[in-house]
Nucleic acid binder design. Structure first.
Length: 228
DNA sequence: GCGACAG
DNA sequence: ATCTTGTCGC
């Protein structure tokens, strides 16, 4: 039926159609704008992340100010999990909680960092593209593991990721002694700009860009609050 | 057919 | 992602 792991805490909805999901991803991939349509100068960037607790999906969003990288706002939400984790279909599981957390943000942000891939996806329609097309805002995908593609030659801390002779993302060793992170275009941005901004939003000595790191912390904070 | 596979 | 304490290294 669907890929990997038969032990899931949730089943695909009875009305789910893989064919339709792929068509949706194809449309999303076509809607992605790979041009810099960002409002410069960037003053605020928000990071979104999703955590899980039993049958709940916890969406978190954290706004970071540039260039000092201090946290100015954090919002969280909890909704019932409606879709299992299936590689390449991550967005169908996480977009709703991420979108709802983002909707609570009052700060006027110019950029969104998403915990997952953008174009670094077999159909060029990862979570960051999916969310980016929905909210019509510049998004950057940040993943901690490689989903698809091949890492080319490393040039210092940098290496492009190729898939079908096409550059779909980049690996960045943001911290010495750590595995790299994988950056890719979500929407309304260029890979080059996405790389520069990722580095600009990553604190020295830390691996992840601050918006993502803070969203992750906020999600876990809210999670243990619910658990207690 | 087999293995790989974001969070 | 989640289950979990201390511990090795820069």
């Amino acid at each position: 039926m669907y890929p990997r792991k038969e032990r899931r805490n949730i089943l695909v909805p009875p009305n789910f159609s893989l064919k339709k999901a792929r068509l949706a991803q194809k449309r999303i991939a076509e809607m992605v704008i790979e041009k810099d349509e960002i409002e410069f100068p960037i003053r605020y960037a928000v990071g979104v992340d999703v955590a899980f607790l039993e049958d709940l999906s916890i969406g978190a969003a954290a706004v970071v100010r540039y260039p000092d990288l201090s946290v100015v706002e954090k919002e969280t939400v909890a909704v019932k999990t409606v879709f299992p984790y299936i590689p390449t279909l991550l967005a169908f599981r996480e977009v709703l909680p991420a979108y709802m957390a983002l909707r609570k943000i009052k700060t006027d942000y110019q950029l969104v960092f998403v915990d997952g891939n953008g174009r670094l996806h077999p159909y060029r329609a990862g979570f960051a593209c999916h969310l980016g097309v929905i909210i019509k805002k510049p998004t950057i995908g940040i993943a901690k593991k490689l989903l698809v593609g091949r890492i080319s030659e490393w040039k210092d801390i940098f290496a492009y990721i190729y898939l079908d002779d096409e550059i779909i993302g980049a690996a960045l060793q943001t911290r010495k002694g750590c595995k790299p992170i994988f950056v890719s275009v979500g929407n309304m941005i260029t890979l080059q700009t996405a790389i520069k901004l990722t580095l600009a939003f990553t604190k020295k000595g830390l691996k992840l860009p601050e918006p993502i790191r803070q969203a992750h912390l906020a999600a876990n904070e809210y999670k243990r609050k619910l658990a207690s």
